[in-house]
């Protein structure tokens, strides 16, 4: 027994796909779903299942990707799938991993590495399920991935604000009125850093975007290979809730990155690496686009005044110019803060 008392189990060790042409044809998220045209959440489900492959168990917390994907008798899943209660992605994954481990150790199940993935929306992951996910992230013995698909709203219940909804957004719980133009004045919860800073033994945390599908699949494969509990946060444009033409779903995902609103990074065994356009922004190779380019393409921000846009831009600038690690760690170095005052 090692001095850490952690009994590691081998993973499937999934190598990254070396280019789009090397990605297998097989789909494990197939036909039968009722998601909207341009739904990027459905896209990450498909990429996730493809990246993980057939020896996988998927758990889906309540949300769009439960309700729209698994109507009785028309499931989309080509891998074993189970519905998990809204706040239970963390507990569900832990339970499955524990069951596999116990039965494999006792010889009542064939011993092999099986991927365990629990996905949750922002309601299930950033709001109700945060406590259970946090607990699961402290269990080093179990190999599992929590994938948070974030459409920045409760999308299945008629679009309401969640803990990850952007500032000022118009939802059915935050419609602008005669007196209050901005009903939602909270800033988006920074979930991936919450996980990585709060759970130092977690070996892999990443943010991804469906606008970079190959990269996203490879992040997922790495999360499943590194061992222990891992966490990925994916931003998913939603035509219905964000109010845009489905044709530009992909473009909006890119714009979220290029405006610096959605930084892409992975933290592997404590080492942070910005990647893609985010890395280019950080290294000065690419100039951040104004947030206006992103916001004004979406009906959910149509009520924004010039002042609102400026406020939003200032908050994103602050994230890039002042944070200890831009886009990741919202702390300032003491000396720099002093210099500014």
């Amino acid at each position: 027994m090692s001095t850490t008392f952690v009994e590691e189990k081998p993973t499937q060790n999934l190598e990254p796909f070396k280019g789009v042409k090397k990605v297998p044809y097989e789909e494990y998220f197939t036909s039968g779903h009722r998601t909207c045209e341009g739904c990027e959440s459905a896209q990450i489900m498909r990429l996730m299942a493809k990246a993980a492959g057939p020896r996988t168990i998927v758990l889906g917390a309540t949300g769009c990707m439960y309700v729209a994907n698994t109507s009785y008798y028309s499931t989309v899943w080509g891998v074993p799938w189970m519905h998990t209660q809204l706040g239970s992605a963390g507990s569900g994954a832990l339970g499955v991993a524990a069951a596999l481990r116990a039965q494999m150790r006792k010889g009542s199940m064939r011993d092999e590495p099986i991927n365990v993935i629990a996905f949750c929306g922002d309601g299930g992951g950033a709001d109700m399920g945060l406590s259970a996910i946090s607990a699961t992230m402290t269990h080093p013995d179990y190999n599992l991935l929590i994938l948070l698909y974030d459409n920045e709203e409760y999308g299945n219940t008629d679009i309401q604000i969640s803990g990850t909804s952007p500032w000022g957004v118009n939802t059915s719980f935050s419609t602008p009125g005669k007196v209050k133009r901005i009903m939602h004045h909270r800033w988006k919860k920074n979930v991936a850093p919450l996980i990585l800073a709060g759970h130092p033994t977690v070996k892999y945390v990443a943010t991804i975007s469906t606008s970079y599908p190959l990269q996203a699949m490879n992040n997922i494969r790495k999360a499943l290979s590194v061992g222990g509990p891992t966490f990925i946060h994916c931003l998913n444009p939603c035509p219905k809730g964000w109010d845009f033409d489905p044709l530009i779903a992909f473009e909006l995902g890119e714009l979220a990155v290029n405006t610096g609103i959605w930084p892409l990074y992975e933290v592997e065994c404590g080492k942070l690496r910005l990647y893609g356009k985010t890395e280019a922004i950080a290294k000065g190779r690419f100039k951040r686009l104004p947030v206006r380019d992103y916001l004004l393409k979406q009906g959910r921000f149509a009520h924004f005044t010039e002042e609102d846009i400026e406020f939003f831009q200032a908050k994103v600038d602050e994230m890039w110019n002042r944070w200890l690690v831009p886009g990741v760690i919202p702390l300032e170095k003491e000396i720099e803060a002093e210099q500014r005052t």
Partner: peptide, 28 residues
Amino acid sequence: MDCEFIVAESENSQFEIVKHASVCGARV
């Protein structure tokens, strides 16, 4: 006793964990 003994962070999780484990064939 040879089992996975998990201390959960709430009763809701406690029961969710064994629920999922049971569906995967474990006696809980």
